[in-house]
Design a protein around this nucleic acid. Structure first.
Length: 482
RNA sequence: GGCGUGUUCGUCUAGCGGCCUAGGACAUCGCCCUCUCAAGGCGAAGAUCACGGGUUCAAAUCCCGUACACGCCA
């Protein structure tokens, strides 16, 4: 049997970190086992669902480098043997299943209003009884039903949960979890509006799409027994379930906007790499026995399995993500680095054929960065007029003897042949020796005069890439300031 | 309120009864390398394994209770 997993987002906003990790795990599990990964859009919340959200979610998943075998092609169309993959296009199926349950006596119309339900719950709490719906509408006579209909009440449909026994969920991550059926309320499967509820549509579709493993967030664990009962009532075999622990913010509460960036796309614009994001997210709730940290290329797919999943929640740590991003950045080949860096360079006004070529400057500085967004700031010294930082000007340049050194070197550079890193280093070290100066006394002012900063690329490499004319010009300009 | 889940360095985690005087990684601090910044190397500090009881020759590991956190019912 081939494994089929799915990610089923509601298009009511952006794909956030938690959703991204759920997607990743489903994808990794499917790919690891040579199975199929499906995307299904749960857009039954007509008020909050938007096409923009679909776009954002699909873009986010694509950016992460996760591909789906069946599901949406764009905001309105889809492809695959079990199409459609938009729940709003499958309403007939849900109604048919609701009908089946009603006919079998396993579901019933409930006319209770929100106010009545609230009152019931309050009364139950006051009397210290479990706040479970008491199933009163199950016993309604035809005449009472007719009265409610006549009064204009629109019923929802509830699924009858057995009143005795217990339901055991055999979760792949949490083990056997049992629930007392008496404490399970009769689940609403169809809203008064006629639309299916999340818990019902999800069951119908997972069965229809032959999903074998449902990997989802911990928040769904409590709904699982009712869903399992639904499978049984419909005569279906349930899939295997795996409930992932939650992702928390630094203060221990559920990760949310006030903790900073939660949308995947925000991480894209902040300069994170998809591979680093995958690597980090994979490790939030999953690990190998050797606590391995770094996974490149296909290594995650090869190594991942549900066995290493953690039961307890994990705090999202952007600092570690950032470290990991640096590791992935350094692992990139030059071509790839350039491709990833391009949008960030462009955004900083660095595009097109430039002198010196971006290939060279990014090559010199790229690997020192942790974020793609850091790259422009490191290479801009080659393209913009020199601006001296206070530390550079007061701390390095405005020292006795510096002016002479700069002028000497400007002259020296004119005569270096061939003009390149190796020859430059040789000549300048020779100069230091001849003048009995420590290399630091020369190198530091030199770097500062050339870049305006006290830190930056390797000195002679910078001079080579900058070229003779610009280098000499910058030295003279700096000397003139002193 | 009921039910469910969870609790190992600040953070992510290893650990599945003796190898644990609890290992790795990020972050922190120090040293080394070095033309600076990164990277890298080495090292330090950091966890009475939530707490309290059991079981056992032996418990972070098994059992029970308590506390707290989170989730679901909403």
């Amino acid at each position: 049997m081939t494994i089929r997993t799915r990610f089923a987002p509601s298009p009511t906003g952006f794909l956030h970190i938690g959703g991204a990790r759920t997607t990743l795990y489903n994808w990794l599990f499917a790919r690891h086992h040579k199975g199929t990964f499906i995307l299904r859009i749960e857009d039954t919340d007509e008020v909050r669902s938007t096409e923009d959200s679909v776009t954002a979610i699909l873009d986010s998943i694509s950016w992460l480098g996760l591909d789906w075998d069946e599901g949406p092609v764009d905001e309105t169309t889809d492809r695959g043997p079990y199409a459609p993959y938009y729940q709003m296009k499958r309403l007939d199926l849900y109604r048919k299943c609701v009908r089946q349950l009603i006919d079998a006596g396993l579901a019933y119309a409930c006319y209770c209003t929100k106010e009545e339900l609230d009152a019931m719950r309050k009364a139950a709490v006051a009397e210290k009884r479990p706040a479970v719906y008491d199933g009163r509408c199950k016993k309604l006579t035809d005449r009472q039903k007719a009265e409610h209909e006549a009064a204009g009440r629109k019923p929802s449909v509830r699924f009858s949960i057995p009143e005795t026994g217990e339901t055991v969920v055999d979760d792949m991550i949490r083990g056997r979890v049992s629930f007392d059926n008496r404490l399970l309320p009769d689940l609403i499967i169809q809203k008064a509006t006629g639309g299916p509820t999340y818990n019902f549509a999800c069951v119908v579709d997972d069965h229809a799409m032959e999903i074998t493993h449902v990997i989802r967030g911990d928040e769904h664990l409590s709904n699982t027994p009712a869903q399992q009962l639904l499978y049984a009532a419909l005569g279906w075999t349930p899939p295997k379930f795996a409930h992932l622990s939650m992702i928390l913010g630094p203060d221990g509460s559920k990760l949310s906007k006030r903790h900073g960036a939660t949308s995947v796309l925000e991480y894209k614009t902040a300069g994170f790499l998809p591979s680093a994001m995958r690597n980090y997210l994979a490790l939030l709730g999953w690990s190998t026995t050797d606590s391995r940290q770094l996974f490149f290329g296909s290594e995650l797919v090869e190594t991942f399995d549900l066995g290493g999943c953690q039961k307890n929640p994990a705090v999202f740590d952007q600092t570690k993500l950032t470290w990991m991003n640096g590791e992935h950045l350094r692992k990139l080949g030059h071509e790839e680095l350039m491709r990833h860096a391009e949008p960030f360079l462009k955004a900083a006004g660095l595009a097109g054929p430039l002198d010196p070529p971006l290939d060279l400057t990014v090559g010199l500085e790229g690997e020192k960065c942790k974020l793609l967004a850091d790259i422009p700031g490191r290479v801009e010294i080659f393209y913009k007029d020199v601006v001296f930082t206070p530390k550079a000007l007061d701390g390095v340049l405005k020292k006795p003897g510096v002016k002479e050194v700069l002028l000497d070197l400007a002259g020296l550079l004119e005569g270096v042949e061939p003009y390149g890193e190796k020859a430059l280093e040789e000549k300048i070290r020779g100069y230091c020796e001849a003048k009995a100066l420590k290399t630091g006394q020369v190198f530091h002012p030199l770097r500062t005069a050339l870049s305006g900063r006290t830190e930056g690329p390797t000195l002679f490499g910078m001079m080579e890439v900058l070229g003779r004319a610009k280098s000499v010009g910058r030295l003279k300009a700096a000397a003139a300031l002193l």
